[in-house]
Design a binder for these strands. Structure first.
Lengths: 346, 346
DNA sequence: TGTTTCGATGTTACCGCTAACACCAAAGGC
DNA sequence: GCCTTTGGTGTTAGCGGTAACATCGAAACA
């Protein structure tokens, strides 16, 4: 009867104890050899490495996490996976956390604070070392949860000072959506436009802030006409942009400028103009938002607002890492600004 | 002196033992009340629920995972976060796994099999209950790792039968990249084009298969000219498409049709044509690949190949869930096909 | 009425790792 | 030469759950 290898684990995988036996040392020494090599003699280190390799040992992060109370994961909650804005933020987060051994774990909230609360609850069960959220509009229960957390929390895409609620002195990384919207409004005004409209979809708080900023700029110029605002809850798309512009022009043929709260809407609007022979910017000026991939490559190239999405992810992750490591003396709120990209549609 | 609440945990959070004490039962009963309510009397169930709520108890998934050897996580490895193709797949996976309580954990491989191996290694340390990979081109060591896994593995975006290596009878979900490329090539030939070029970036194995299919179609028609192939390793973008088309036209002004291996390249090509006054499809036919968001909204609308990205994610997750639950008698390879979207650029 | 059955609950022993402390031999100080 | 330091290693206990088995009272049965 052949002796079986002493793979003790239920999963059939080698455990630290197996490696210890094979290397003729204790489990603790194996742990040290792997995690704090300087604490172990060179000879033993080599024996452990060899045994470990031979058995194909993969240390269980689960067990380590349980023992050390550090999971090396970070919960990241975003509204949607299909909106490239959040994916860019996520990419920045992932690139920054990864080299430090932290694993982002993604939750999708569908733009709904209640769903966010639910997802956060389930994610907290796996004991993340930090949390990154989108926006500051959370349910009261979510704020309670966050307050009770022993780990740091960073909010992105918005700034505490722009939020109309108690933010608990939270860590925030973003830019002023209001100011960005305002800048677009003012730009259209300065271009001499008088009948300036607004089209928005996906009415999350950030979109609303942009709209508020735009409205404010128009009010300041004495040009605001509520009839020229078309806001729908549907998620944005090129098709929606074309459709909404058509509706708006039917009702207000005198429209001479338009702010669309996301570039895909703007792209749809440009398409509609091309199809209908509406001169851009001759008869209608068009501005978008976000400076997504193709914005510089529409015809004519789209005026829009470049938002620092990737940088927000990077900075949020940095702030979080600092907080995890106990550096709580850095900035609590980081404003990464935005840039109005004036191209040829205005 | 006020008595402190018996929060035993290091993290300050309530543990199951705390809830047990509060409810006047044993920890095991709490566990049962939460996980198998039918095994517990209604009265105790209520007491546990109440105590649990009062203490804000969140059961530690880590501890549960360690005890049950089920982490309820699935490792998902994708080449890039910024390519929307993989995000669409990911969204399908996430939507499908989530209702079953499984949490996708994402790893980014940067299109490099060696990096994939490295990322996989670190991810396996957290004991996922399943693995979903992109493509079938893995390092030998990766294949070894996968073979040794006690959990199921699904490969996406490709089909075992199209792969020129040993796939170990792996579970695969995808479509034939080769056939899709071939369909585009044949379509351009059938439109009567004679000087048909190819532009490709991001030369991963799937892109290469598309190119191979296209080439085969041209060879079959006796129209293949290697000089009309322009393949670069850079990642694709609208800007790159415009630039590469300019280069190709400079060298081959007689070009009358072009297949670009991704829609963003095609969009750039269309932009270049508009700028240079090149009639599409009059003088030059253009076809893209993937049917990304704006493809139907270019001017003119882009002929491209619609790929079932979301469905691939959904189906991959389904297959994986079935395998996790021991249903190994389903299909091992799922071909979700593709659709040639003939619009106005060809 | 005594025995069996069964549903509800408790006990024990881990899962795989690491913190904290114990231990021990060799090196260093006086 | 004796006592302290020190570097290397082992031991013990426990992280927060759960599987498996033990227990026990009441209902069901003979």
């Amino acid at each position: 009867m052949p002796t079986r290898k002493p793979r003790s684990s239920r999963t059939g995988r080698a455990t630290m104890a197996d490696v210890a036996t094979a290397a003729g040392v204790s489990a603790m020494t194996v742990s040290r050899a792997l995690n704090r090599p300087d604490k172990v003699s060179e000879e033993v280190r080599a024996r452990v490495a060899e045994a470990s390799r031979r058995l194909g040992f993969v240390p269980s992060r689960l067990a380590a996490a349980l023992a050390t109370a550090r999971s090396m994961t970070v919960t990241v909650l975003i509204p949607s996976l299909t909106n490239s804005v959040f994916i860019d933020v996520l990419a920045g987060i992932q690139e920054t956390l990864s080299p430090h051994g932290y694993q982002p774990v993604i939750g999708v909230t569908g733009y709904a604070p209640e769903e966010e609360e639910r997802v956060l609850r389930t994610q907290l069960a796996s004991g993340p070392d930090g949390v990154i959220l989108t926006g500051l509009d959370h349910t009261p229960a979510t704020w309670d949860l966050l307050r009770g957390l022993p780990t740091p929390v960073v909010h992105t895409m918005d700034l505490a000072r722009n939020f109309a609620g108690d933010t608990d002195d939270a860590l925030t990384v973003g830019f002023s959506q209001f100011d960005a919207g305002h800048a677009v409004g003012r730009h259209l005004v300065e271009r001499g436009r008088r009948r300036i409209g607004l089209i928005a979809g996906q009415l999350d708080p950030r979109t609303r802030q942009r709209c508020d900023g735009w409205r404010q700029a128009l009010v300041e110029a004495g040009l605001h006409d509520p009839a020229l605002e078309l806001m729908v809850p549907d998620s944005t798309s090129v098709a929606l942009g074309a459709e909404l512009l058509e509706r708006m022009l039917a009702a207000h043929p005198d429209l001479d400028a338009l702010f669309l709260c996301n570039d895909d809407l703007a792209q749809g609007a440009l398409f509609h103009c091309a199809r209908r022979g509406i001169a851009v910017p001759g008869r209608l000026a068009v501005a978008g938002f976000n400076d997504l991939g193709g914005a510089a490559w529409t015809i004519p190239p789209l005026t829009t607002v470049a938002t620092p999405r990737h940088a927000i992810g990077v900075e949020a992750a940095r702030l979080l890492l600092a907080a995890i490591n106990g550096n709580d003396n850095g900035p609590r709120s980081v404003d990464l600004g935005f840039r109005l990209m004036v191209r040829e549609t205005t």
